[in-house]
């Protein structure tokens, strides 16, 4: 199984098996709910990882795109009479367009400047969502119409488990394939050295922008899926803390590792649920676990583990 994880189809196969087999161990639909949350967050994290891990750019405002996706499926059907699925696509389109327009100027920035600029973008989106209460329901959020496909209504934790699981599988497949394309290789070149990449004839700005748009679409889709699953949205989903959570998932799991994003999301979603037994020490422990894993697994959980396993064999 471990050897399988070194090949991209191996990863996909293992993931598919995990998604298919997990429900057999679930005693109640609460577990379906937690697992679906993991799949959705993992999906967003994979997208962000393309930007951060592969192309080496940072985004502290990524929840902004998540929020756009979420509110697209909330506002579309409620206020504009657009079917959920069309609204979802419109949300992706809007996110891509915004990422393109915003990304053009701000991706020329580097390091802290880029971090602040993306952070500003995220805050702006959250601000608009909070204040335009006529459309968005304001700070308390709004409810989302259930997804209906040809007369079939998607509801229930188990249904959404399969939908989000399928989505994650597709997202993983695309991200893994991207690695082997010229675009993926250009991203990696960018990551290692921008100057070297430019010298070899890579259009640095274009590829940065491409990674940013891809990541935005991933986040937007994840936002739409979560909103449809929950049946409600609120501005927290576009908020700064959510952006940080997404970044933490990517970094904790392993920058540049698709599998790492899934593991990172799983850890961050499941820990608060597991730690409830410790009551008031919950947040303390959550922080401690993250600090410890960042100190001892600086490259992230998955890259560190795979190195560890290979080291053993050698």
């Amino acid at each position: 199984m471990l050897a399988a994880l070194r090949h991209r189809y191996g990863i996909l196969l293992v993931l598919a098996i995990v998604i298919a087999v997990l429900p057999l161990a679930f005693p109640s639909s609460y577990y379906f709910r937690v697992a679906s949350l993991v799949w959705v967050s993992a999906f967003a994290a994979i997208g962000l990882n393309i930007l951060m891990g592969k192309a080496g750019q940072v985004s502290l405002g990524h929840a902004g795109f998540f929020g756009i996706g979420a509110y697209a499926v909330a506002i579309g059907p409620t206020h504009l009479g657009v079917p959920s699925l069309v609204a979802l696509l419109l949300g992706c389109l809007l996110s891509a367009l915004l990422a393109f327009l915003v990304g053009r100027p701000i991706l020329r920035l580097k390091g802290h400047y880029l971090a602040i600029a993306t952070l500003g973008f995220g805050v702006l989106v959250a601000l608009v969502i909070t204040t335009e209460s006529r459309w968005t329901g304001g700070p308390d959020g709004m409810s989302v119409m259930k997804l209906t496909l040809f007369g079939w209504r998607a509801s229930g934790s188990d249904t959404w488990y399969w939908i989000t699981g399928g989505l994650l599988l597709a997202g993983t497949w695309i991200a893994l394939n991207l690695d082997e394309t010229p675009t993926g290789r250009a991203f990696r070149a960018l990551h290692d050295s921008e100057i070297a990449a430019r010298v070899t004839g890579i259009n640095v700005n274009r590829f940065k922008l491409q990674a940013f748009v891809i990541a935005a679409v991933y986040a937007s889709l994840a936002g739409s899926a979560l909103a449809l699953m929950n049946g409600f949205v609120n501005p927290d989903q576009a908020g700064f803390l959510h952006s940080i959570e997404l970044v933490t998932m990517v970094v904790l799991g392993g920058l540049g590792s698709v599998l790492g994003s899934i593991v990172g999301a799983a850890v961050l979603i499941m820990l608060p649920q597991v730690l409830t037994v410790f009551q008031e020490y919950e947040n303390l422990l959550l922080g401690a676990i993250i600090i410890v894993s960042m100190i001892f697994m600086r490259e992230g959980i998955v890259p560190m583990l795979s190195k560890f396993m290979m080291g053993r064999r050698a």
Binding site: V267, L271, I289, S293, F296, M297, F308
Partner: peptide, 19 residues
């Protein structure tokens, strides 16, 4: 190091199955 890794992995997995 490996203990810490093991703990970080095992904790979320074991806790969730407490029923």
């Amino acid at each position: 190091k490996s203990l810490a890794i093991a703990a970080a992995i095992a904790l979320p997995l074991s806790g969730l199955s407490i029923y």
